[in-house]
């Protein structure tokens, strides 16, 4: 019962805040809405039975990645700028086609799910130790790949960021 009480409000909050991200004018607000959305999703994880994943979601997504976003937004000082065209929420005209397609896609997804009557428990296995064992024993290759991706990401970020901090650098030095 507690789970149901947690799940559906969190889901509704997640959808609303996500919509707010898309339609907000100010990037700072948008980032904050996104953080709220992530909090809501982490509540969903908790309600599905895995406090560990909920914590991971909050710490890494909301805590690390979104803060990175916030830094950049503040660095670019976009919030203080007068509202340019590109910061305006998308108009109806720009929304028609993607809206239609996205709706079709959503209807299809739901139809598929309903038609399939997915069975099985909703209780997540919740043992971080077992999770760790499974990850490092069964999916060690994935761990390595993720590590390499992270390494490449950090190298790329450093390289591009260095060029960004020294504007005199010529483009050909970058590429």
């Amino acid at each position: 019962m507690m789970q149901i009480l947690m799940f559906y409000p969190s889901a509704v909050i997640a959808v609303i805040t996500t919509l707010m991200v898309i339609f907000s004018k100010n990037p700072v607000y948008a980032v904050l809405y996104l953080i709220m959305s992530l909090f809501a999703v982490s509540m969903v994880f908790w309600s599905l039975g895995s406090p560990f994943l909920a914590m991971v979601e909050i710490i890494i997504y909301a805590g690390a990645i979104m803060v990175l976003f916030l830094f950049v937004v503040m660095m670019l000082n976009l919030g203080q700028r007068r509202v340019d065209e590109d910061l305006r929420p998308p108009s109806g005209k720009a929304l028609i086609l993607p809206g239609i397609f996205a709706t079709i896609l959503l209807v299809q997804t739901i139809a598929c799910l309903m038609a399939g009557h997915p069975q099985g428990g909703t209780q997540l296995l919740n043992d971080p130790v077992a999770l760790g064992h499974a990850m490092y024993e069964k999916h060690y290759l994935g761990v390595k790949l993720a590590a390499i991706i992270l390494l490449i990401g950090s190298i790329g970020g450093m390289h591009l960021g260095r060029a960004a901090s020294f504007p005199d650098t010529k483009e050909k030095d970058l590429l």
Binding site: L97, P98, F101, A102, I104, L105, Q108, C112
Partner: peptide, 15 residues
């Protein structure tokens, strides 16, 4: 958007 259109079309086809 073109990609999305493609995805939708393929999904409809598959379904």
């Amino acid at each position: 958007m073109v990609m999305l259109f493609g995805v939708v079309a393929v999904t409809i086809l598959v379904m």
